[in-house]
């Protein structure tokens, strides 16, 4: 029968479960919980977490290798009978895709011409950064994936993450060689989206279920079952038009989204470097940028006989503006 002693002898070896240490660790744990809340996490805690995942990433990657090598076994045996049919269907889709590919190139060229003509500046989307999932923590507190690339590969907090089918989530914790991706299904995920057909706006809110909710859709939203939901780009958090999923309506009338990214396990993903659009009130000071103000008129000085006088009228900044096309 168990006794109430805090220490005991285990044969010759004294085994201690030190009560003061135990209490001290309880206090430390409580303090960590209080100070490491996701909503108000300090930079120091964030940096510590990122450094730890950096250290753990190679080990986790090692652990993920055997899993990755057997991941195809289940579907392989299950789908053997359907392979021929699927192959024929894919060939047909490939033929159709070639037409769309050609069309996409032509549309891209046209858009470039229009954008040049209109002097429209679209958010810059650079080359995608590929990364493997090295950890897939499952639990009640966070729905996230750890990927095996970080700051060294050019990944930064807030960058969107997609897989072959659609948007997976956003980067929210970046280490040097690893980064954590907050999934769209996580409790803390909030993404501005819209229906591709009607441009009806909504916020996609994760609730740990497989089908995140569409909130703030208005009283009579212009949504239909099966509407393609894409990122709206509102707030500049994400680029516009990233495929998210399909709208579905529950029996209670609530709108939810069946995520495209769920069509396959999130294994290999792409991180899209994306420069967030900064609102004017949050823009850095113009003096920091060392750029001439665009609204100032270009001063073209007539030739002066007195060099000192000309220098006083036409400052160097304006001379720089004059050179701009």
């Amino acid at each position: 029968m168990a006794s109430r002693r805090s220490t005991r002898n285990d044969n010759d070896q004294r085994v201690t479960f030190s009560r003061p240490l135990f209490i001290a660790l309880l206090v430390v744990s409580g303090a960590l919980i209080a100070f490491d809340r996701p909503a108000s996490r300090s930079d120091a805690f964030g940096a510590f977490r990122a450094a730890f995942t950096d250290l753990a990433a190679p080990l986790l990657e090692l652990g993920a290798q055997p899993i990755r090598s057997v991941k195809g076994i289940g579907p392989y045996f299950r789908r053997q009978g359907d392979l021929a049919e699927e192959n024929a269907r894919l060939r047909q889709q490939l033929i159709e895709a070639r037409y769309w590919e050609d069309l996409a190139y032509r549309q891209r060229d046209r858009i470039e011409i229009y954008e040049d003509a209109l002097d429209v500046e679209t958010p810059m989307i650079e080359d995608r950064i590929g990364a493997w999932t090295v950890a897939d923590p499952q639990g009640p507190f966070v729905q996230a994936r750890l990927i095996g690339r970080g700051l060294e590969a050019g990944i930064r907090d807030g960058y969107p993450v997609i897989n072959l089918y659609g948007l997976v989530g956003r980067v929210y914790e970046t280490g040097r060689r690893s980064a954590r991706v907050l999934l769209l299904t996580d409790l803390n995920s909030r993404i501005p989206v819209m229906a591709d057909r009607s441009n009806a706006r909504a916020i996609l809110i994760g609730d740990n279920s497989d089908y995140p909710r569409l909130e703030y859709v208005g009283r009579a939203p212009d949504l239909q079952e099966g509407d393609r939901i894409v990122s709206s780009g509102d707030g500049g958090i994400l680029p516009r038009g990233l495929p998210v999923g399909e709208a579905i309506q529950t029996r209670s009338g609530e709108w939810r989204v069946r995520l495209y990214s769920d069509q396959a396990p999130v294994d290999f993903v792409w991180v899209w470097p994306y420069q967030r659009i900064v609102p004017p009130d949050q823009e850095p000071d113009e003096t920091d940028l060392q750029l001439p103000p665009a609204s100032l008129p270009v001063i073209v000085e007539p030739p002066q006989t007195d060099a000192g006088e000309a220098e006083a009228v036409a400052p160097e900044a304006d001379a720089t503006v004059e050179e701009q096309p």
């Binding site: 168990a2 135990f22 660790l25 309880l26």
Partner: peptide, 25 residues
């Protein structure tokens, strides 16, 4: 840290649970 949970959650849980139910004697 590995699972991305707030720090201290599982540490606190394991400490209390093991302290309460560990085998003594």
């Amino acid at each position: 840290l590995l699972t991305g949970a707030p720090m201290g959650v599982w540490a606190l849980s394991y400490l209390i649970a093991i302290a309460a139910f560990r085998f003594r004697g």
